[in-house]
Design a protein around this nucleic acid. Structure first.
Length: 545
RNA sequence: GCCCCUGUAGCUCAGCGGAUAGAGCAUCGGCUUCCGGAGCCGUGUGCGCAGGUUCGAUUCCUGCCAGGGGCGCCA
Protein backbone atom coordinates (compact mmCIF):
# COMPACT_ATOMS: atom_id res chain seq x y z
CA UNK A 1 0.00 0.00 0.00
CA UNK A 2 1.07 3.53 -0.75
CA UNK A 3 2.36 5.42 2.29
CA UNK A 4 -0.15 8.15 1.85
CA UNK A 5 -3.08 5.75 1.75
CA UNK A 6 -1.74 4.02 4.80
CA UNK A 7 -1.53 7.24 6.79
CA UNK A 8 -4.87 8.46 5.52
CA UNK A 9 -6.46 5.27 6.75
CA UNK A 10 -4.95 5.81 10.16
CA UNK A 11 -6.37 9.30 10.32
CA UNK A 12 -9.80 8.21 9.18
CA UNK A 13 -9.94 5.43 11.72
CA UNK A 14 -8.88 7.80 14.47
CA UNK A 15 -11.45 10.37 13.39
CA UNK A 16 -14.28 7.90 13.33
CA UNK A 17 -13.31 6.62 16.76
CA UNK A 18 -13.96 10.19 17.92
CA UNK A 19 -17.18 10.35 15.96
CA UNK A 20 -15.81 12.70 13.29
CA UNK A 21 -15.73 12.49 9.53
CA UNK A 22 -13.00 13.42 7.11
CA UNK A 23 -13.75 16.38 4.87
CA UNK A 24 -12.33 18.02 1.76
CA UNK A 25 -10.34 20.68 3.54
CA UNK A 26 -8.22 18.02 5.14
CA UNK A 27 -4.79 17.64 3.66
CA UNK A 28 -1.95 15.28 4.09
CA UNK A 29 1.20 17.04 3.10
CA UNK A 30 4.95 16.76 3.27
CA UNK A 31 6.24 19.55 5.47
CA UNK A 32 9.02 21.69 4.05
CA UNK A 33 10.86 21.48 7.32
CA UNK A 34 12.20 18.00 8.14
CA UNK A 35 11.75 18.66 11.86
CA UNK A 36 8.03 18.64 11.17
CA UNK A 37 8.20 15.00 10.24
CA UNK A 38 7.74 13.12 7.00
CA UNK A 39 4.04 13.76 6.68
CA UNK A 40 1.74 16.19 8.33
CA UNK A 41 -1.98 16.75 8.53
CA UNK A 42 -4.13 19.75 9.36
CA UNK A 43 -7.22 17.73 10.40
CA UNK A 44 -7.24 19.08 13.91
CA UNK A 45 -7.10 22.67 12.65
CA UNK A 46 -9.86 22.11 10.15
CA UNK A 47 -12.20 20.17 12.41
CA UNK A 48 -11.66 21.86 15.76
CA UNK A 49 -14.75 23.99 15.44
CA UNK A 50 -16.98 21.11 14.42
CA UNK A 51 -15.60 19.02 17.29
CA UNK A 52 -16.17 21.89 19.70
CA UNK A 53 -12.60 21.65 20.80
CA UNK A 54 -9.42 23.61 20.24
CA UNK A 55 -6.98 22.41 17.57
CA UNK A 56 -4.19 21.32 19.88
CA UNK A 57 -6.45 19.32 22.16
CA UNK A 58 -8.12 17.64 19.23
CA UNK A 59 -4.73 16.84 17.71
CA UNK A 60 -3.63 15.27 20.98
CA UNK A 61 -6.80 13.17 21.12
CA UNK A 62 -6.25 12.01 17.57
CA UNK A 63 -2.64 11.20 18.27
CA UNK A 64 -3.51 8.95 21.19
CA UNK A 65 -6.26 7.33 19.14
CA UNK A 66 -3.85 6.60 16.31
CA UNK A 67 -1.39 5.02 18.72
CA UNK A 68 -3.93 2.22 19.06
CA UNK A 69 -3.66 1.32 15.42
CA UNK A 70 -0.66 -0.26 13.81
CA UNK A 71 1.26 0.79 10.74
CA UNK A 72 4.41 -0.53 9.12
CA UNK A 73 5.71 2.93 8.52
CA UNK A 74 4.91 5.18 11.45
CA UNK A 75 7.71 5.60 13.99
CA UNK A 76 6.19 8.30 16.16
CA UNK A 77 3.62 11.05 16.19
CA UNK A 78 3.67 14.54 17.57
CA UNK A 79 1.44 17.55 17.89
CA UNK A 80 3.12 20.74 16.81
CA UNK A 81 2.55 24.38 16.04
CA UNK A 82 -1.07 25.53 16.03
CA UNK A 83 -2.33 21.93 15.96
CA UNK A 84 -0.59 20.02 13.21
CA UNK A 85 -0.26 16.32 13.61
CA UNK A 86 3.17 15.27 12.40
CA UNK A 87 4.08 11.73 11.39
CA UNK A 88 7.67 10.63 11.67
CA UNK A 89 8.25 7.51 9.62
CA UNK A 90 10.95 4.91 9.57
CA UNK A 91 13.11 4.66 6.46
CA UNK A 92 11.39 1.65 4.97
CA UNK A 93 8.87 3.85 3.23
CA UNK A 94 11.69 5.54 1.33
CA UNK A 95 13.23 2.21 0.38
CA UNK A 96 9.84 1.16 -0.93
CA UNK A 97 9.66 4.28 -3.07
CA UNK A 98 13.07 3.56 -4.54
CA UNK A 99 12.14 0.01 -5.42
CA UNK A 100 8.84 1.11 -6.94
CA UNK A 101 10.50 3.69 -9.17
CA UNK A 102 13.13 1.26 -10.43
CA UNK A 103 10.49 -1.41 -10.97
CA UNK A 104 8.29 0.98 -12.91
CA UNK A 105 11.09 2.46 -15.02
CA UNK A 106 10.88 5.80 -16.76
CA UNK A 107 8.10 4.63 -19.03
CA UNK A 108 5.70 3.97 -16.17
CA UNK A 109 6.93 5.96 -13.16
CA UNK A 110 4.93 9.05 -12.27
CA UNK A 111 1.95 8.13 -14.39
CA UNK A 112 -1.57 8.95 -13.35
CA UNK A 113 -4.92 7.99 -14.69
CA UNK A 114 -6.99 11.11 -14.28
CA UNK A 115 -7.24 11.35 -18.05
CA UNK A 116 -8.00 7.70 -18.69
CA UNK A 117 -10.52 7.15 -21.47
CA UNK A 118 -10.61 10.85 -22.26
CA UNK A 119 -9.55 12.58 -25.44
CA UNK A 120 -8.04 16.02 -25.77
CA UNK A 121 -6.95 18.14 -28.69
CA UNK A 122 -4.09 20.49 -27.92
CA UNK A 123 -3.99 23.17 -30.58
CA UNK A 124 -0.87 25.30 -30.61
CA UNK A 125 1.46 27.41 -32.75
CA UNK A 126 -1.15 27.73 -35.55
CA UNK A 127 0.89 30.51 -37.14
CA UNK A 128 -0.19 31.74 -40.55
CA UNK A 129 1.62 30.04 -43.43
CA UNK A 130 2.84 33.41 -44.63
CA UNK A 131 6.40 33.29 -43.36
CA UNK A 132 8.80 31.53 -41.01
CA UNK A 133 8.12 31.06 -37.29
CA UNK A 134 9.82 33.60 -35.07
CA UNK A 135 11.35 33.46 -31.61
CA UNK A 136 8.04 34.30 -29.93
CA UNK A 137 6.34 31.27 -31.47
CA UNK A 138 8.92 29.08 -29.73
CA UNK A 139 7.37 29.62 -26.34
CA UNK A 140 3.90 28.51 -27.38
CA UNK A 141 5.38 25.63 -29.36
CA UNK A 142 7.42 24.20 -26.47
CA UNK A 143 4.64 24.88 -23.99
CA UNK A 144 1.95 23.21 -26.09
CA UNK A 145 4.07 20.16 -26.75
CA UNK A 146 4.98 19.75 -23.08
CA UNK A 147 1.36 20.12 -22.04
CA UNK A 148 0.56 17.33 -24.50
CA UNK A 149 3.29 15.18 -22.95
CA UNK A 150 1.94 15.84 -19.46
CA UNK A 151 -1.56 14.89 -20.54
CA UNK A 152 -0.28 11.72 -22.18
CA UNK A 153 1.40 10.71 -18.94
CA UNK A 154 -1.90 11.34 -17.20
CA UNK A 155 -3.70 8.83 -19.37
CA UNK A 156 -5.29 11.13 -21.94
CA UNK A 157 -5.44 10.26 -25.57
CA UNK A 158 -3.85 13.41 -26.99
CA UNK A 159 -3.85 14.91 -30.45
CA UNK A 160 -1.47 17.76 -31.28
CA UNK A 161 -3.04 19.98 -33.85
CA UNK A 162 -1.88 22.92 -35.96
CA UNK A 163 -4.60 25.08 -37.48
CA UNK A 164 -3.48 26.40 -40.86
CA UNK A 165 -5.01 29.70 -42.00
CA UNK A 166 -4.42 28.92 -45.63
CA UNK A 167 -7.02 31.25 -47.12
CA UNK A 168 -8.27 34.78 -46.69
CA UNK A 169 -6.83 38.27 -46.79
CA UNK A 170 -3.45 37.60 -45.27
CA UNK A 171 -2.84 34.62 -47.51
CA UNK A 172 -3.70 36.64 -50.61
CA UNK A 173 -1.36 39.42 -49.53
CA UNK A 174 1.38 36.89 -48.98
CA UNK A 175 0.84 35.41 -52.45
CA UNK A 176 0.86 38.82 -54.14
CA UNK A 177 3.99 39.79 -52.20
CA UNK A 178 5.75 36.66 -53.42
CA UNK A 179 4.58 37.22 -56.98
CA UNK A 180 5.66 40.85 -56.98
CA UNK A 181 9.04 40.03 -55.57
CA UNK A 182 9.56 37.24 -58.11
CA UNK A 183 8.77 39.67 -60.89
CA UNK A 184 11.12 42.27 -59.38
CA UNK A 185 8.19 44.54 -58.75
CA UNK A 186 7.36 46.62 -55.68
CA UNK A 187 5.72 44.55 -52.93
CA UNK A 188 2.25 45.95 -52.03
CA UNK A 189 2.34 48.44 -49.16
CA UNK A 190 0.17 46.29 -46.91
CA UNK A 191 1.93 43.12 -48.07
CA UNK A 192 4.80 41.20 -46.49
CA UNK A 193 8.18 42.89 -46.45
CA UNK A 194 10.42 40.47 -44.59
CA UNK A 195 13.75 39.51 -46.08
CA UNK A 196 12.49 35.94 -46.52
CA UNK A 197 10.02 37.11 -49.19
CA UNK A 198 12.86 38.04 -51.53
CA UNK A 199 14.69 34.85 -50.67
CA UNK A 200 11.72 32.56 -51.12
CA UNK A 201 10.44 34.24 -54.26
CA UNK A 202 13.62 33.40 -56.14
CA UNK A 203 12.67 29.73 -55.73
CA UNK A 204 9.13 30.22 -57.00
CA UNK A 205 8.88 28.24 -60.25
CA UNK A 206 7.42 30.16 -63.14
CA UNK A 207 3.78 29.31 -63.75
CA UNK A 208 3.19 27.99 -60.21
CA UNK A 209 0.35 29.45 -58.16
CA UNK A 210 2.16 31.70 -55.67
CA UNK A 211 -0.45 31.02 -52.99
CA UNK A 212 -0.26 27.25 -53.17
CA UNK A 213 3.48 27.24 -53.58
CA UNK A 214 4.00 29.80 -50.81
CA UNK A 215 1.81 27.83 -48.43
CA UNK A 216 3.81 24.67 -49.04
CA UNK A 217 7.03 26.55 -48.58
CA UNK A 218 5.90 28.10 -45.31
CA UNK A 219 4.54 24.82 -43.94
CA UNK A 220 7.69 22.91 -44.71
CA UNK A 221 9.67 25.63 -42.98
CA UNK A 222 7.37 25.34 -39.95
CA UNK A 223 7.66 21.57 -39.87
CA UNK A 224 11.40 21.66 -40.14
CA UNK A 225 12.02 23.98 -37.23
CA UNK A 226 9.36 22.35 -35.03
CA UNK A 227 10.86 18.97 -35.74
CA UNK A 228 14.28 20.29 -34.74
CA UNK A 229 12.66 21.17 -31.41
CA UNK A 230 11.37 17.61 -31.07
CA UNK A 231 7.80 18.67 -31.79
CA UNK A 232 5.65 16.59 -34.14
CA UNK A 233 2.03 17.40 -34.87
CA UNK A 234 -0.60 14.71 -35.39
CA UNK A 235 -2.69 16.88 -37.60
CA UNK A 236 -2.45 20.03 -39.71
CA UNK A 237 -5.99 21.30 -40.10
CA UNK A 238 -6.56 23.38 -43.21
CA UNK A 239 -8.95 26.31 -43.02
CA UNK A 240 -9.47 26.08 -46.76
CA UNK A 241 -10.63 22.48 -46.46
CA UNK A 242 -13.69 23.78 -44.62
CA UNK A 243 -14.66 25.88 -47.63
CA UNK A 244 -14.52 22.77 -49.77
CA UNK A 245 -16.39 20.61 -47.26
CA UNK A 246 -19.06 23.27 -46.78
CA UNK A 247 -18.64 23.31 -43.03
CA UNK A 248 -18.16 27.07 -42.94
CA UNK A 249 -21.49 27.69 -44.67
CA UNK A 250 -23.07 25.08 -42.44
CA UNK A 251 -21.78 26.86 -39.35
CA UNK A 252 -23.24 30.09 -40.65
CA UNK A 253 -26.69 28.53 -40.98
CA UNK A 254 -26.40 26.88 -37.57
CA UNK A 255 -25.70 30.29 -36.06
CA UNK A 256 -28.64 31.70 -37.94
CA UNK A 257 -30.95 28.89 -36.74
CA UNK A 258 -29.80 29.49 -33.19
CA UNK A 259 -30.67 33.18 -33.63
CA UNK A 260 -27.10 33.91 -32.66
CA UNK A 261 -26.43 36.10 -35.69
CA UNK A 262 -28.08 39.02 -37.48
CA UNK A 263 -27.58 41.22 -40.50
CA UNK A 264 -26.63 44.87 -40.23
CA UNK A 265 -24.96 47.33 -42.63
CA UNK A 266 -24.68 44.58 -45.20
CA UNK A 267 -22.62 42.37 -42.87
CA UNK A 268 -23.53 39.36 -40.74
CA UNK A 269 -22.79 39.72 -37.04
CA UNK A 270 -22.41 37.34 -34.13
CA UNK A 271 -24.44 38.32 -31.05
CA UNK A 272 -21.45 37.71 -28.84
CA UNK A 273 -22.59 40.37 -26.35
CA UNK A 274 -25.31 37.94 -25.27
CA UNK A 275 -22.56 35.79 -23.82
CA UNK A 276 -20.35 38.32 -22.17
CA UNK A 277 -18.34 39.85 -25.01
CA UNK A 278 -18.12 43.63 -24.95
CA UNK A 279 -19.31 44.05 -28.53
CA UNK A 280 -20.85 42.03 -31.33
CA UNK A 281 -18.44 40.67 -33.94
CA UNK A 282 -18.60 40.49 -37.70
CA UNK A 283 -18.76 37.01 -39.22
CA UNK A 284 -19.23 37.95 -42.88
CA UNK A 285 -18.05 41.31 -44.13
CA UNK A 286 -20.25 43.55 -46.28
CA UNK A 287 -18.15 42.53 -49.29
CA UNK A 288 -19.18 38.91 -48.72
CA UNK A 289 -15.77 37.75 -47.45
CA UNK A 290 -15.54 35.86 -44.16
CA UNK A 291 -13.70 37.40 -41.25
CA UNK A 292 -11.19 35.12 -39.54
CA UNK A 293 -13.86 34.44 -36.91
CA UNK A 294 -16.38 32.41 -38.88
CA UNK A 295 -13.99 29.72 -40.15
CA UNK A 296 -12.49 29.59 -36.67
CA UNK A 297 -15.92 28.91 -35.17
CA UNK A 298 -16.45 26.18 -37.75
CA UNK A 299 -13.09 24.73 -36.83
CA UNK A 300 -13.92 24.69 -33.15
CA UNK A 301 -17.24 22.97 -33.84
CA UNK A 302 -15.29 20.35 -35.70
CA UNK A 303 -12.91 19.89 -32.78
CA UNK A 304 -15.76 19.69 -30.27
CA UNK A 305 -17.11 16.74 -32.19
CA UNK A 306 -13.74 15.02 -32.06
CA UNK A 307 -12.61 15.35 -28.44
CA UNK A 308 -13.82 15.64 -24.86
CA UNK A 309 -11.58 18.51 -24.08
CA UNK A 310 -10.06 21.32 -26.18
CA UNK A 311 -6.95 23.17 -25.16
CA UNK A 312 -5.76 26.14 -27.20
CA UNK A 313 -2.45 27.87 -26.73
CA UNK A 314 -2.63 31.49 -27.81
CA UNK A 315 -0.22 34.38 -27.62
CA UNK A 316 -0.97 37.32 -25.33
CA UNK A 317 -1.92 39.44 -28.33
CA UNK A 318 -4.91 37.14 -28.95
CA UNK A 319 -6.42 37.13 -25.50
CA UNK A 320 -9.23 39.41 -26.69
CA UNK A 321 -10.61 36.64 -28.89
CA UNK A 322 -11.30 34.25 -26.06
CA UNK A 323 -14.63 35.79 -25.12
CA UNK A 324 -15.99 35.84 -28.67
CA UNK A 325 -14.94 32.25 -29.37
CA UNK A 326 -16.55 31.06 -26.18
CA UNK A 327 -19.63 33.13 -27.00
CA UNK A 328 -19.88 31.41 -30.38
CA UNK A 329 -19.51 27.98 -28.82
CA UNK A 330 -22.10 28.71 -26.19
CA UNK A 331 -24.59 30.18 -28.63
CA UNK A 332 -24.43 26.90 -30.53
CA UNK A 333 -25.37 24.98 -27.41
CA UNK A 334 -21.98 23.76 -26.25
CA UNK A 335 -20.52 24.26 -22.81
CA UNK A 336 -17.90 26.99 -23.13
CA UNK A 337 -15.84 25.29 -20.42
CA UNK A 338 -14.91 22.58 -22.86
CA UNK A 339 -12.60 25.07 -24.52
CA UNK A 340 -9.65 26.06 -22.39
CA UNK A 341 -7.46 28.81 -23.75
CA UNK A 342 -3.98 29.08 -22.31
CA UNK A 343 -2.35 32.42 -23.02
CA UNK A 344 1.42 32.73 -23.21
CA UNK A 345 2.88 36.12 -22.34
CA UNK A 346 5.50 37.76 -24.50
CA UNK A 347 9.15 36.84 -24.98
CA UNK A 348 11.77 39.58 -25.06
CA UNK A 349 14.96 38.56 -26.79
CA UNK A 350 18.33 39.73 -25.55
CA UNK A 351 21.96 39.29 -26.41
CA UNK A 352 24.29 39.78 -23.45
CA UNK A 353 21.70 41.86 -21.65
CA UNK A 354 21.00 44.06 -24.68
CA UNK A 355 17.50 43.96 -26.07
CA UNK A 356 17.21 42.61 -29.61
CA UNK A 357 14.98 45.06 -31.43
CA UNK A 358 12.21 43.56 -33.48
CA UNK A 359 10.24 45.41 -36.07
CA UNK A 360 7.12 43.92 -37.52
CA UNK A 361 6.82 46.74 -40.03
CA UNK A 362 10.07 45.99 -41.81
CA UNK A 363 9.58 42.28 -41.19
CA UNK A 364 12.75 42.38 -39.14
CA UNK A 365 12.27 39.37 -36.89
CA UNK A 366 14.47 36.75 -35.27
CA UNK A 367 13.44 33.45 -36.74
CA UNK A 368 12.88 30.49 -34.45
CA UNK A 369 15.31 28.49 -36.58
CA UNK A 370 18.02 31.06 -35.74
CA UNK A 371 17.29 30.66 -32.05
CA UNK A 372 17.57 26.88 -32.26
CA UNK A 373 20.73 27.11 -34.32
CA UNK A 374 22.30 29.56 -31.90
CA UNK A 375 21.47 27.93 -28.56
CA UNK A 376 20.59 24.35 -29.49
CA UNK A 377 17.29 22.52 -29.26
CA UNK A 378 17.57 21.29 -25.66
CA UNK A 379 18.60 24.67 -24.27
CA UNK A 380 15.87 26.43 -26.26
CA UNK A 381 13.17 24.08 -24.98
CA UNK A 382 14.32 24.07 -21.39
CA UNK A 383 14.59 27.86 -21.34
CA UNK A 384 11.17 28.43 -22.88
CA UNK A 385 9.78 26.13 -20.17
CA UNK A 386 11.78 27.63 -17.33
CA UNK A 387 9.04 29.85 -16.01
CA UNK A 388 5.26 30.17 -15.87
CA UNK A 389 3.61 31.26 -19.13
CA UNK A 390 1.87 34.00 -17.14
CA UNK A 391 5.08 35.98 -16.87
CA UNK A 392 6.80 37.88 -19.65
CA UNK A 393 10.02 36.12 -20.43
CA UNK A 394 13.46 37.48 -21.08
CA UNK A 395 15.40 35.13 -23.32
CA UNK A 396 19.11 35.94 -23.54
CA UNK A 397 20.57 34.17 -26.57
CA UNK A 398 24.16 34.49 -25.37
CA UNK A 399 23.48 33.13 -21.91
CA UNK A 400 21.26 30.28 -23.07
CA UNK A 401 23.87 29.12 -25.58
CA UNK A 402 26.56 28.85 -22.91
CA UNK A 403 27.56 25.35 -21.92
CA UNK A 404 28.14 26.24 -18.29
CA UNK A 405 26.62 24.94 -15.10
CA UNK A 406 24.89 28.28 -14.47
CA UNK A 407 22.72 27.40 -17.46
CA UNK A 408 20.00 25.16 -15.96
CA UNK A 409 19.74 22.81 -18.91
CA UNK A 410 23.40 21.85 -18.67
CA UNK A 411 23.24 21.57 -14.92
CA UNK A 412 20.42 19.05 -15.24
CA UNK A 413 21.86 17.15 -18.18
CA UNK A 414 25.22 16.98 -16.45
CA UNK A 415 23.60 15.27 -13.49
CA UNK A 416 22.33 12.60 -15.85
CA UNK A 417 25.62 12.26 -17.73
CA UNK A 418 27.51 11.99 -14.45
CA UNK A 419 25.54 8.94 -13.40
CA UNK A 420 25.83 7.32 -16.81
CA UNK A 421 29.54 7.98 -16.73
CA UNK A 422 29.83 6.34 -13.33
CA UNK A 423 27.88 3.34 -14.59
CA UNK A 424 30.17 3.00 -17.56
CA UNK A 425 33.13 3.00 -15.23
CA UNK A 426 31.40 0.45 -13.00
CA UNK A 427 31.02 -1.80 -15.97
CA UNK A 428 34.67 -1.38 -16.89
CA UNK A 429 35.86 -2.38 -13.44
CA UNK A 430 33.70 -5.49 -13.55
CA UNK A 431 30.91 -4.41 -11.22
CA UNK A 432 27.86 -6.64 -11.44
CA UNK A 433 24.60 -5.30 -10.03
CA UNK A 434 22.73 -7.83 -7.90
CA UNK A 435 19.04 -8.56 -8.38
CA UNK A 436 16.79 -6.29 -6.36
CA UNK A 437 15.88 -8.95 -3.83
CA UNK A 438 19.52 -9.44 -2.85
CA UNK A 439 20.30 -5.79 -2.22
CA UNK A 440 20.34 -4.58 1.36
CA UNK A 441 18.64 -1.19 1.15
CA UNK A 442 19.23 -0.45 4.81
CA UNK A 443 22.77 0.40 3.72
CA UNK A 444 21.24 3.69 2.61
CA UNK A 445 21.42 5.92 5.68
CA UNK A 446 23.16 9.08 4.52
CA UNK A 447 21.06 12.27 4.57
CA UNK A 448 21.99 12.90 0.93
CA UNK A 449 20.51 9.56 0.02
CA UNK A 450 17.30 10.25 1.91
CA UNK A 451 16.90 13.63 0.23
CA UNK A 452 17.24 12.02 -3.19
CA UNK A 453 14.55 9.44 -2.52
CA UNK A 454 12.23 12.04 -1.06
CA UNK A 455 12.54 14.08 -4.23
CA UNK A 456 12.00 11.00 -6.31
CA UNK A 457 8.85 10.34 -4.35
CA UNK A 458 7.56 13.82 -5.07
CA UNK A 459 7.72 13.41 -8.82
CA UNK A 460 4.39 11.61 -9.32
CA UNK A 461 2.64 14.38 -7.37
CA UNK A 462 4.48 17.08 -9.29
CA UNK A 463 3.53 15.50 -12.61
CA UNK A 464 -0.06 15.10 -11.54
CA UNK A 465 -0.36 18.70 -10.50
CA UNK A 466 1.53 20.06 -13.50
CA UNK A 467 -0.80 18.17 -15.81
CA UNK A 468 -3.91 19.40 -14.03
CA UNK A 469 -2.69 22.97 -14.03
CA UNK A 470 -1.18 22.72 -17.52
CA UNK A 471 2.05 24.03 -16.05
CA UNK A 472 5.18 22.32 -17.38
CA UNK A 473 7.43 24.82 -15.59
CA UNK A 474 6.70 22.88 -12.42
CA UNK A 475 8.56 19.98 -14.00
CA UNK A 476 11.48 22.24 -14.85
CA UNK A 477 11.62 23.48 -11.27
CA UNK A 478 11.53 19.94 -9.90
CA UNK A 479 14.30 18.82 -12.27
CA UNK A 480 16.59 21.63 -11.14
CA UNK A 481 16.01 20.68 -7.51
CA UNK A 482 16.51 17.01 -8.18
CA UNK A 483 19.71 17.63 -10.14
CA UNK A 484 21.00 19.69 -7.22
CA UNK A 485 20.17 16.80 -4.88
CA UNK A 486 22.15 14.45 -7.10
CA UNK A 487 25.19 16.73 -7.31
CA UNK A 488 25.16 17.08 -3.55
CA UNK A 489 24.99 13.32 -3.08
CA UNK A 490 27.68 12.74 -5.65
CA UNK A 491 29.97 15.15 -3.90
CA UNK A 492 29.60 13.52 -0.49
CA UNK A 493 29.01 9.86 -1.26
CA UNK A 494 31.13 7.52 -3.34
CA UNK A 495 29.63 4.56 -5.09
CA UNK A 496 32.63 2.67 -6.43
CA UNK A 497 36.00 2.12 -4.82
CA UNK A 498 38.06 -0.34 -2.81
CA UNK A 499 37.18 1.42 0.42
CA UNK A 500 33.43 1.14 -0.18
CA UNK A 501 31.66 -1.93 1.16
CA UNK A 502 30.32 -4.03 -1.73
CA UNK A 503 26.86 -4.05 -0.15
CA UNK A 504 26.89 -0.25 -0.01
CA UNK A 505 28.01 -0.07 -3.63
CA UNK A 506 25.08 -2.28 -4.56
CA UNK A 507 22.59 -0.13 -2.67
CA UNK A 508 23.92 3.12 -4.05
CA UNK A 509 24.01 1.75 -7.55
CA UNK A 510 20.34 0.93 -7.23
CA UNK A 511 19.72 4.41 -5.90
CA UNK A 512 21.35 5.79 -9.03
CA UNK A 513 19.06 3.66 -11.18
CA UNK A 514 16.13 5.28 -9.43
CA UNK A 515 17.57 8.74 -9.98
CA UNK A 516 18.00 8.03 -13.68
CA UNK A 517 14.31 7.11 -13.83
CA UNK A 518 13.35 10.42 -12.27
CA UNK A 519 15.60 12.46 -14.52
CA UNK A 520 14.42 10.62 -17.60
CA UNK A 521 10.76 11.18 -16.77
CA UNK A 522 11.33 14.88 -16.18
CA UNK A 523 13.38 15.44 -19.30
CA UNK A 524 10.98 13.44 -21.43
CA UNK A 525 8.11 15.64 -20.27
CA UNK A 526 10.04 18.72 -21.29
CA UNK A 527 11.10 17.19 -24.58
CA UNK A 528 14.82 17.53 -23.95
CA UNK A 529 17.38 14.78 -24.42
CA UNK A 530 19.07 12.80 -21.66
CA UNK A 531 22.68 12.58 -22.85
CA UNK A 532 24.91 9.75 -21.66
CA UNK A 533 27.89 12.04 -21.89
CA UNK A 534 28.57 15.68 -22.52
CA UNK A 535 31.70 17.66 -23.01
CA UNK A 536 32.46 21.29 -22.53
CA UNK A 537 33.25 23.17 -25.74
CA UNK A 538 36.82 24.08 -24.80
CA UNK A 539 37.56 20.54 -23.64
CA UNK A 540 36.19 19.12 -26.86
CA UNK A 541 38.48 21.38 -28.84
CA UNK A 542 41.47 20.32 -26.77
CA UNK A 543 40.50 16.67 -26.92
CA UNK A 544 40.04 16.60 -30.67
CA UNK A 545 43.20 18.59 -31.32
C1' G B 1 -12.11 54.13 -20.70
C1' C B 2 -12.62 48.58 -20.92
C1' C B 3 -10.21 43.51 -20.91
C1' C B 4 -5.88 40.06 -19.88
C1' C B 5 -1.01 39.12 -17.44
C1' U B 6 2.59 40.65 -13.83
C1' G B 7 4.45 43.09 -9.10
C1' U B 8 8.29 38.12 -3.83
C1' A B 9 16.16 39.16 -2.18
C1' G B 10 20.58 43.89 -5.83
C1' C B 11 19.11 40.74 -10.65
C1' U B 12 16.23 36.30 -12.96
C1' C B 13 12.45 33.44 -11.03
C1' A B 14 9.84 29.22 -7.67
C1' G B 15 6.24 29.07 -3.92
C1' C B 16 -0.32 23.48 -2.98
C1' G B 17 -4.89 28.56 2.41
C1' G B 18 -0.54 26.45 6.97
C1' A B 19 4.65 26.19 10.94
C1' U B 20 11.09 29.96 10.50
C1' A B 21 8.68 32.51 2.41
C1' G B 22 12.79 29.41 -1.11
C1' A B 23 16.38 28.48 -5.65
C1' G B 24 19.97 30.34 -9.26
C1' C B 25 23.02 34.57 -10.44
C1' A B 26 25.82 38.50 -8.22
C1' U B 27 28.94 39.59 -3.29
C1' C B 28 32.25 37.60 0.32
C1' G B 29 34.64 33.13 2.41
C1' G B 30 35.82 27.86 2.40
C1' C B 31 36.38 22.57 0.14
C1' U B 32 40.92 18.62 -4.94
C1' U B 33 44.73 11.73 -2.27
C1' C B 34 37.72 12.86 -6.29
C1' C B 35 33.20 7.41 -9.97
C1' G B 36 33.96 14.01 -14.84
C1' G B 37 35.75 20.34 -9.60
C1' A B 38 31.03 21.48 -15.65
C1' G B 39 30.82 20.04 -8.70
C1' C B 40 29.96 20.97 -3.22
C1' C B 41 29.43 23.98 1.46
C1' G B 42 28.72 28.55 4.07
C1' U B 43 27.44 34.10 3.98
C1' G B 44 21.69 38.67 4.22
C1' U B 45 18.31 41.20 2.33
C1' G B 46 12.16 40.55 0.39
C1' C B 47 5.89 39.22 -0.33
C1' G B 48 3.70 47.10 -4.34
C1' C B 49 -0.31 49.70 -0.97
C1' A B 50 -5.12 49.47 1.76
C1' G B 51 -9.32 46.78 3.19
C1' G B 52 -12.15 41.94 3.44
C1' U B 53 -12.97 36.37 4.04
C1' U B 54 -10.48 32.67 7.43
C1' C B 55 -8.41 29.46 13.41
C1' G B 56 -4.54 30.93 9.83
C1' A B 57 -3.47 34.99 3.58
C1' U B 58 2.59 35.83 -0.34
C1' U B 59 -1.61 32.52 -1.81
C1' C B 60 -8.69 33.72 -2.21
C1' C B 61 -12.00 38.49 -2.88
C1' U B 62 -12.47 44.08 -3.55
C1' G B 63 -10.20 48.83 -4.37
C1' C B 64 -5.83 51.65 -5.47
C1' C B 65 -0.70 52.28 -7.48
C1' A B 66 3.11 50.63 -11.06
C1' G B 67 4.90 47.77 -15.57
C1' G B 68 3.66 44.80 -20.10
C1' G B 69 -0.05 43.33 -23.75
C1' G B 70 -4.88 43.79 -26.25
C1' C B 71 -9.28 46.59 -27.59
C1' G B 72 -10.51 46.51 -36.68
C1' C B 73 -16.01 44.57 -41.59
C1' C B 74 -6.93 42.43 -40.05
C1' A B 75 -5.28 37.41 -38.56
Amino acid sequence: MDVRESIKNLIEEALSSLGLEISDEIHLERPANVEHGDWSTNVALALAKKAESNPRDLAAQLASAIENFTSDYVDRLEVAGPGFLNFHLNKTWLYDVLVQSVDAGSKDWARSQHGANKTVIVEFVSANPTGPLHAGHGRGACYGDSVARLLERSGYSVSREFYVNDRGTQMNLFASSLAASAADEEVPVDGYHGAYIKEWSTDLPEGDDPLEWGKKRALSSHKEVLSSLNIEFDSWFSENSMVESGSIEKTLSLLDEASASYEKDGAIWLKSTQYGDDKDRVLVKSDGEYTYLLPDVAYHLDKLARADRLINVWGADHHGYISRMKAAIESLGHEPERLEVEVTQMVNLQRSGEEVKLSKRTGDIVELSEVVKEVGSDAARFTYLLQSIDTTQTFDLDFVSKRVNENPIFYVQYAYARIRSMMKKADQVGFKPLPLSEIDLSELQHPREMVLIRSLHELPDVVDRASRELAPHQITAWLREFAADLHGFYHDCRILGDDIEPSLTQARFLLMRGVLVGLEVGMELLGVSAPTEMWRDDLVEEGDG
